[in-house]
């Protein structure tokens, strides 16, 4: 049982090779194009120039990454709490689910471009509007995943628990909630990729600091290299969060990775 582990890790690394190759070659092609065509860095800066700007402006970038991270985490924490709270409430009250679900769907049809300035207008330039916007964008995939996940519970397991005399609450805790976890992580992975982008957009609309402000200022002073430097950081943040959820999923859903002996 112990032996296959290193081989598996090796295989997983090997599976990552094509992805790394394709990303690296895209950057190489970009670099070559910029150098050969002599295009102005005001139009399209080369990857090396973006990297150089990241190093030169590291203090500025770091100082503005922190507020974005704060907004992302606070918004996501709020979103997670609301999604869990609502999902549990909706599971115990199917009537409320029918009444409220359309509202949640509508909340996802609001164009962020229109709603973000309004939220900033109502809540000011502080953390609040960013937190709210991140939460608005990210809570829905998780809520839907949880509600669907509860419904996916094996009816035989519920019958079994009922035959044991379990209460509705016990069935929820022991059967419905764990059944929803694979679904929840699917929703979480979608949500987390929206979170950083939502925070940056909220800052872009109105803030004192943050990657969104860096992008806004750089754009206004015709510095696409700094815009892209901020974009790289934003991508790295999202990738890090995505990796963190994948790691968490592996821990929580360990039972799904076990190999059957059959």
């Amino acid at each position: 049982m112990q032996r296959p582990v290193p081989r598996q890790t090796g295989r997983e690394l090997a599976r990552g090779v094509p992805a790394v190759l394709s990303v690296v070659s895209a950057f190489v092609i970009w670099e070559i194009y910029v150098r050969l065509s002599g295009i102005s860095p005001l139009m399209l800066p080369a990857p090396t120039r973006v990297l150089d700007q990241m190093v030169q402006n590291r203090v500025l970038l770091w100082d503005n990454t922190l507020p974005t991270l704060t907004a992302t985490f606070a918004g996501f924490a709020l979103s997670l709490t609301v999604a869990f709270g609502l999902s549990i409430m909706l599971d115990f009250m199917p009537h409320v689910r029918r009444a409220l679900f359309p509202i949640f769907v509508v909340s996802q049809t609001l164009p962020l471009v229109a709603i973000a300035p309004l939220v900033v207008l109502w809540f000011g330039f502080d953390l609040t509007p960013k937190v709210l916007l991140v939460a608005l964008v990210t809570f829905f995939p998780m809520l839907v995943a949880l509600v669907d996940g509860y419904a996916s519970t094996d009816p035989e397991i519920e019958d079994l628990m009922r035959s044991m005399g379990a209460t509705r609450g016990q069935i929820f805790r022991a059967a419905r909630f764990p059944s929803a976890m694979p679904y929840f992580f699917a929703g979480l992975r979608i949500s987390i990729t929206y979170a950083v982008v939502a925070a940056i957009f909220a800052e872009y609309v109105g803030a004192r600091a943050g990657l969104g402000i860096v992008i806004l200022n750089a754009k206004n002073s015709f510095r696409p290299d700094i815009v892209l430097a901020a974009v790289v950081i934003s991508s790295l943040l999202t990738l890090a969060l995505f990796a963190a959820t994948a790691l968490l999923q592996k821990t929580v859903l360990r039972w799904r990775d076990v190999e059957g002996d059959r």
């Binding site: 094996d154 035989e156 079994l160 039972w255």
Partner: peptide
Amino acid sequence: RDALMPWR
């Protein structure tokens, strides 16, 4: 069917 909880 056994109805064992796969996560337990």
